[in-house]
Design a protein around this nucleic acid. Structure first.
Lengths: 234, 234
DNA sequence: TGTCGGCGTCAAGGACCCGTCAAGATCCCG
DNA sequence: CGGGATCTTGACGGGTCCTTGACGCCGACA
């Protein structure tokens, strides 16, 4: 489910936005000030941010800059200010869109759809190949030594999330929320069980995993062989 | 040079747009109707399209659909119509942005910049590079000499806060509140321990740190060398 | 020059987390 | 209604990480 972080100090508007977005089947997180917004964005990794510029603790443009320092998540800015310079500042800081309050809900939803559509194109090929096994995301198939590997639905779901975030660390909360739902973010035991099962089915040495890597206390990471120069080219 | 195709049946506005865009060093093509727009888009392959919806020969939304049939070039729509449904229709047809006439030239330019920025292929995540190690905030990964560095959750959190405030002084209270919570702002000893651990893992000479700098009595600062290093932002 | 506070370093204990196995509980399909 | 696969839950050993204390160094200051 698409995760949207909504940032606004107006609790009434915040609630209205959350209700409308949830009715459209978005997974909504909220924040009432800039510091909370930056913290929640870092911890939950949303797919899109709706950001009101008028925050109590810091300038909205600073929040945009703070996000842009580490993520390219789409940002749609809301503001009561209708001047050109305000819009130019926000957009040049890294915002993707700027809407002036009051705004129409349908238009906001449409702009959210447009922003997500732009961000959507996954350049990664649907099939991932490692020396030990291959994962075909579109066909939902895993092959090892040419033979298909039998995965349970939950096992596949966990693997899928990790592969979609290839090389990136996925926090335990992210995984649990994505696979089991928001109310299961505490059940870290599930992860241990299922990661162990996946490793037993996929890793050549399950006790010394090469791809399904644990980052103790944080989460898991799907590691791809990075042979040759570890160039992190721009 | 960035090529922009401007489509409008109002020749005066068309000329004004062309002049302004050329002054900003864009390479401008123009079209006065939908058929010409589609033909020119196909032949010249612009990097961005500015499209007035009010065209003499066909509906602007059809032009959007016609372009989206074969290209994902960013499209910024101009229109005199200010209704929500008009905006929703255009955006859902595949437009990237919608501006209501009359509009400010500076805002249009800013939205063009934003659209081009998004379209710019930047598959790699923003990374902080120093001569000694690299920090990938998005992937939560630290690399030194090409090999990943193992950080504990707390070590990573401290480093993350410092890197997010690149070059800026972070007070001890800020760090403690962010990483350990508001009730730990007195525990400055934690900082000494963890900064030492980070230096041991990251600095070439832990006793003479080049990046994790102490500001005695105040806090800490992440320092980057000016020469040859820097952020490759989004 | 002596004192004091802040900083860096090291080490140890205990809490916490991870991997593993296995036994119910539940779901799904025949 | 029955059986198998799958999911949940519990227990436990081993390892990691956080916390805490002790100590030396250095600069500020009297």
């Amino acid at each position: 489910m698409t995760r949207v972080l909504v940032v606004d100090d107006d609790t009434a508007l915040l609630r209205a936005l959350a209700i409308n977005l949830r009715a459209r089947h978005f997974d909504v997180e909220t924040a009432g000030d800039g510091a909370t917004a930056l913290r929640k964005a870092a911890s939950t990794g949303p797919d899109l941010v709706v950001l009101d510029l008028g925050l109590p603790d810091m300038d909205g443009v600073e929040v945009v800059a703070g996000l842009r320092g580490w993520t390219s998540v789409p940002i749609i800015v809301l503001s009561a200010r209708d001047t050109q310079s305000a819009k130019v500042d926000a957009l040049d800081a890294g915002a993707d869109d700027y809407m002036t309050k009051p705004f129409g809900m349908d238009e906001l939803i449409a702009r959210i759809r447009a922003a997500l559509r732009r961000a959507a194109p996954e350049p990664t090929s649907p099939v991932l190949v490692t020396p030990d096994f291959t994962v075909d995301l579109s066909a939902k198939r895993v092959t090892r030594d040419g033979a298909p590997v039998r995965l349970t639905p939950t096992e596949w779901h966990v693997l899928e999330v990790l592969v979609r975030n290839l090389g990136k660390l996925v926090t335990q909360q992210q995984l649990l929320r994505e696979v089991w739902g928001p109310s299961y973010v505490e059940e870290t035991h599930y992860l241990r069980v299922y990661l162990a099962q996946l490793r037993r089915k996929l890793e050549p040495e399950p006790s010394r995993p090469r791809h399904l890597i644990t980052e103790p206390g944080i989460g898991y990471r799907f590691e791809v062989e990075r042979q040759g120069s570890g160039r992190t080219g721009a």
